[in-house]
Design a protein around this nucleic acid. Structure first.
Lengths: 182, 182
DNA sequence: TAGCAAACATGATGGAGATCATGTATCCTG
DNA sequence: CAGGATACATGATCTCCATCATGTTTGCTA
């Protein structure tokens, strides 16, 4: 089964795509190379035609996950989505930083570098999106605002009591809009 | 080699202690039962005399890690420690939530429940520590403040550029004290 | 269109790690 | 102080998984 050139590029993308979902949902270690290939509609053998190793896949997947630009807007507006129950309950399609940042620290240096780069870029983009008169203030708001949203999402996900999950999401959203107005 | 009763209790504690450090530093999956026992000065065989399984160890370790009460004080004061370069660079002795929360989501239900319980308790304690006239406001501040600190610590740790790590820690600290005064 | 090389499937291989089986030395109970 | 139980060591087992080896089909190039 060989396919045309384009199909090959598509396959590579599909692998990165499903790897991203699987990693975010289950973590790097619990997902096997075989799982990824099966989810992409292939078998494990072909894997090493696309990637040097599982570590290589992880690094490239992180880069892929962080390539789209995050939504723009003020913190309150962004938080409306980021801290929604929808996003909270949907790890596999949600923010890769919240889902994978901690584990990435323990992966190979390339993976960590890819995550670090993505985070740096996103902080820059958010700061621009927030920029008013004072760039320094916008950057601070970007850093702290992003920290707040990521931390809250993680805490909300850990709670097994839905009421508490909702409380964390809502209260953090309110705190962020208070801040924005005050 | 059998030891007196007390030694047994001590051994159990030592295992939980070193397991906590290893897990926080390397994650649940990269630490083996053998690693833990070796670090505790024992061999792998005795492990199943203490714990039913590795999952059991994980759950009990989380409970153990979260049993001490967190420091009290206002957000700015707490952040001074929590967002210090020291804490940032010292995963194995640092906050278990920042180090392990995400991975705990993917562990057995008992582990997740232990983490959820700890988080609930800590939010309550922080809220009390912050309580002024308005309990609701204190609780909101506790939730959002904790989220901010945890998120910032995670982001700071991901960055491989020390300057950026420092920036994240400092700016978040400032944002939190601004909020406290404003 | 002949033949090569790419893309992928199937099936090893090899190591790691969780758990179990067994042996032994030491503590505790009578 | 005898006998059993306990705490632990050593070594075996068994599964899982990353990676490699090989074969086969099919697009591509001359």
């Amino acid at each position: 089964m060989k396919v045309c050139r384009e199909q090959v590029a598509e396959n590579r993308l599909r692998i990165l795509e499903v790897a991203g979902e699987l990693f975010k949902a289950q973590g790097f270690d619990k997902v096997t190379v075989c799982d990824v290939m099966k989810a992409a509609g292939l078998t494990h053998g072909g894997f090493y035609g696309y990637f040097k190793s599982k570590d290589d896949l992880i690094a490239q997947t992180i880069t892929h996950l962080l390539s789209p630009a995050p939504p723009r807007g003020g913190l309150a507006r962004i938080a409306e989505h980021y801290l929604s129950t929808d996003h909270c309950g949907n790890m596999k399609e949600g923010c890769p930083v919240a889902a994978l940042a901690t584990e990435t620290l323990r992966q190979a240096p390339e993976a960590r570098a890819a995550m670090a780069d993505g985070v740096r870029r996103r902080i820059g983009e958010l700061a621009q999106s927030l920029a008013g008169d004072d760039d320094r203030a916008a950057r601070r708001e970007a850093i702290a605002g992003m920290s707040t949203m990521i931390g809250a999402l993680i805490l909300a996900r850990i709670c097994d009591d839905p009421a508490m999950t909702r409380e964390i999401l809502e209260e953090t959203r309110m705190w962020l809009s208070d801040r924005e107005q005050g």
